[in-house]
């Protein structure tokens, strides 16, 4: 075996695997969405777009991401700043902060179901405080905004940890000297955060935002656990078409929509948070 061939040999399994199980299936999705028995057709896309739930599902999905991701970003930045400033108990608190990282969205949905369901802890507390006399049905179809709020809370609760972890690692890569220089030149703690931390954190912010926004577009199990199908989202609709309605083509059309907004979001963040060449650490 020649040394020249070795790296290719080592990459071969991963490359083949990704080509067969990643690139090929995505081509398949695109084909499924726009072909019928007679070749190319836009019929599935039309079926999808004309279904009454499509616009609401698209709307709720985007709204959810638009609400959840900014809140997570602010929270994660605060948490990361707190963690980097901790002197005692750093590892214990870091562990607690990152616990939700390991939880699935389904588990998160169930956790928040325990709080929001009719006989749940929120009602128990309100009742105990004398705010309500009867437990309220928070997660019913009349209260779609409460379901939305519950989903937002569950998503923030679960997925802020990953953003924090990425940001903490990113902050760890910023040399202390920059802060010391900032302090010497008279920057306050807040100014140091705005002028030094944020700009130098750009690569981390970029990956965190892309990762989180795409995951927010894929939201599925939390919504199902908390609201069943009352609150339609794109991934839930995809699942419905695949299973309940047994129409792969329309499901694939939905998949294409998720793919499209994901790529749009990725490009957006790549552009907005780009790091000029040579300005990296």
């Amino acid at each position: 075996m020649t040394p020249k061939a070795l790296p290719y040999l080592l990459l071969l399994p991963a490359t083949v695997f990704l080509l067969v199980f990643f690139v090929y299936p995505f081509i398949q999705i695109a084909l499924l969405a726009v072909t019928g028995p007679e070749g190319f057709t836009l019929q599935h896309v039309q079926t999808m777009a004309s279904h009454w739930k499509f616009n609401t599902a698209l709307g709720w999905t985007i709204l959810l991401a638009a609400v959840v991701v900014p809140i997570q970003l602010v929270m994660a930045l605060s948490m990361a700043s707190i963690v980097t400033r901790l002197q005692t108990g750093r590892s214990a608190i870091l562990y607690i902060f990152s616990i939700p990282l390991g939880l699935s969205d389904l588990a998160a949905g169930i956790v928040w179901l325990a709080i929001f369901e009719q006989s749940g802890f929120l009602n128990s507390m309100l009742y105990g405080l004398g705010v309500v006399e009867q437990p309220i049905l928070f997660l019913g179809y009349q209260n779609i905004w409460v379901i939305f709020l519950a989903v937002v809370l569950a998503e923030i609760w679960r997925a802020t940890a990953i953003v924090m972890v990425i940001l903490v690692s990113g902050m760890g890569l910023i040399p202390k000297e920059y802060y010391e220089a900032g302090e010497v030149f008279g920057a306050s703690a807040w100014q140091r955060f705005i002028k030094i931390t944020l700009p130098m954190l750009r690569p981390s912010l970029q990956s965190a935002l892309i990762l989180r926004t795409l995951a927010a577009f894929e939201v599925f199990a939390v919504v199902t656990a908390l609201g069943g199908t009352t609150l339609p989202v794109l991934m839930g609709e995809t699942f419905q078409w695949q299973f309940t309605l047994q129409d792969r083509n329309v499901a694939s059309a939905y998949a294409l929509v998720i793919l499209a907004i994901s790529i749009a979001a990725t490009l957006f963040f790549l552009r907005v948070l780009r790091v000029p060449k040579g300005a990296t650490l």
Binding site: F21, P25, I29, Q242
Partner: peptide, 22 residues
């Protein structure tokens, strides 16, 4: 190769299940 790997992160991967089912 790096691009291929990084690209996987920009795609909603659970959707792979649809064509792979076939």
């Amino acid at each position: 190769f790096r691009m291929l790997v990084v690209m996987t992160r920009a795609f909603p991967l659970p959707l792979l299940a649809l064509p792979l089912a076939v």
